[in-house]
Amino acid sequence: MSTILKIFAFPAALIIMCVGILTILGGHITPGGGFQGGAMIAGAFIFCVIVYGLRESPFKFSHDFLASMESAGALGFVLLGLAGLIFSGFYLYNVGTDLYNIVDPIIKNLFHYPDPTNAGILPYLNFVVGLKVLVGLSAVVIAFLGFNQLDEES
């Protein structure tokens, strides 16, 4: 790739990642959410990997990192769902908002997201979905580029 592209790609990727994070954070009240934001962050990573190559890319997503983030995302989603099941009797019940007044106020305050919209656990769900999506899409591209390198070497 050209030098101009190499100078531009990394700072641009940082900004695109921030836009992706902002999309995740506004997912409960505006268009967007975990999947879209995660895909934007993965897009920034893919941009860097294509411009610099897998070995020289400034973003090093190791196998352990990908595995741990994927697991944390899935586990976070299940645990938030189980919190609803334990405290209200319904899986994925929004215990932070508690529309039906069936949850203890202490639990409600514990899961309450500090914002003016009384969103409850939705931003946390967006966050963990964003983690899963960014890792999943990045892993696909890393695998394809890895196979490509193996082909070239053999």
């Binding site: 990642m17 994070i21 995740i24 997503f61 914002d115 966050f127």
Partner: peptide
Amino acid sequence: YAGPLILGFVMGFILGTRIKT
């Protein structure tokens, strides 16, 4: 509001730890 500040920082921090030039 603390919500976007904390979650945004955590997400950025996770990604920032993977920048290794």
